[in-house]
Design a binder for these strands. Sequence first.
RNA 1: GUCUUGUUAGCUCAGCUGGUAGAGCACGUCACUUUUAAUGAUGUGGCCGAUGGUUCGAAUCCAUCACAGGACACCA
Length: 503
Amino acid sequence: MAFENKFIQQRIEKAEALRAEGINPYSNDSKRNTTIEKYMNVNSDIAEKEEKRDEHRHYIVSGRIKFFRIMGKASFIKIEDESGMLQVYVTRDNLAEGFYNTVFKKLVEVGDIVEVSGFPFVTGKGELSLHCSEFKLLTKAIAPLPEKFHGVTDKEIRYRKRYLDLIMNNEVRKTFQIRSKVISLTRRFFEDKGFLEVETPMMHPIAGGANAKPFVTHHNALGVDRFLRIAPELYLKRLIVGGFEAVFEINRNFRNEGMDATHNPEFTSIEFYWAYKTYKDLIEITKEYFQYLFEHLNLPTLLPYGEMEVNFENLTELPLIESLTTVGGVPAEVVNEKEKIVEFLNSKNITVKPGMNLGQLQGELFDEFVEDKLIDPTFITEYPVEISPLARRDDKNPAITERFELFIAGREIANAFSELNDPIDQYERFKGQGEAKEAGDDEAHEMDEDFIDALSYGMAPTAGQGIGIDRLVMLLTNEHSIRDVLLFPAMKPVHTEERQEEA
RNA sequence: GUCUUGUUAGCUCAGCUGGUAGAGCACGUCACUUUUAAUGAUGUGGCCGAUGGUUCGAAUCCAUCACAGGACACCA
């Protein structure tokens, strides 16, 4: 089964031949004393020297062989480490007697990880290289790498074997470096603002905090089912009740739903809750957060995304109802009348479920005519209460809530509101959800009595927000599939025949 | 979930209306001490995604299935 491929067989034989030569094909005797990036920087002066070399300098560099060019008694190879690629000039006469012909030329190949030492020089074609005086194999690769020019482009291979993708496609590494920076900058930003990072359970007795189908697992010792969390919200709010005034959590949520370019069953979000603040403060901190990210990631404020260009200096606020007419082009006399909205939607060949209330219909108008036109960052505010079950009502206008959603490049990036902290109101809303669940809505919330208990002790007025990190990274890296910003995206199993045999 | 396109050598891809498979890279052998996807010569390499069907004959036509990409629907 394993290793049966003829190319792999061939390379296993080479590994054995190396052992016969007294060379360990999996040596851990690494003496590396610099990275390729540092080597290139430190030796950038060589090009200005008359002799184009400095034999008094000596470096040991390691990396994977990406190119192998033999020209008789001399060779050029290119090795790559995490920091960059370096050309190495290897000659027969600079290595130990016989090594070049019997080992280097015969038993070393593209994909192997090696360590070379020597001095810096610049080739006739002007490339800063390393003149090799000692060559050591560190790790023999028994699987051949994909083709050196086209690399691996098959998305299925790239997602399933991300390590190969990372070896072959440099820009992929950059995407994930940016992702890592986004997360670490996010953490630092909120810590600097006085937020406390917390970790709440991922295994919930009741899956709450969002409308979504949970994954179910089983706890043997307790004999109970547990749900992988769909959102950390209800636990974070318990912490506000407990007296923490600013908390955040960056971690995974799990939703047992479909997969596509913007949905993975597990995804990363940041949720943060801030006592004694309202959604207006959240708008301000969100603006600051984006400014902080752009500054530290050195991103242009005119950010390209696909065909679009997003202007991050043009952040605006817009009430939802107003956006329907100004952005969506919906006639003003339509937007506040149920019948007229249905009529209008029908005239555009959009059918709506019967019995939708005004807020839902306005939401429908927004989705159809406004959302994908919001290219520059736009905080849509004053959401109808009917489509905002967790948000606090506006004190002056009970039809709308203290909420915003942030849209960028035609997509929702963040959702935030002043939190509902009236325990009785919350209880009633849970009850309504319970009835919806009985009626067949398997995404409806379940009653969380402990959460009601918590609110009963009093939660300070609080504003809370969630940002989808994966989608944010997509935006910042100009990627259009969530799978391109997840190191190991969810994939269906492949070996169906084997599975059936085992079963 | 629906529609649609794809799956041929380790990788990237040809293979037309059916006649038992082809290139480049990689790999083997040879030549070559400043190359840049090195070059030149030569050779090895395949159950054409799986299972059925049509046919004298299937990589090619049909059906089902699997996986993947894209679009739409739902959601973050």
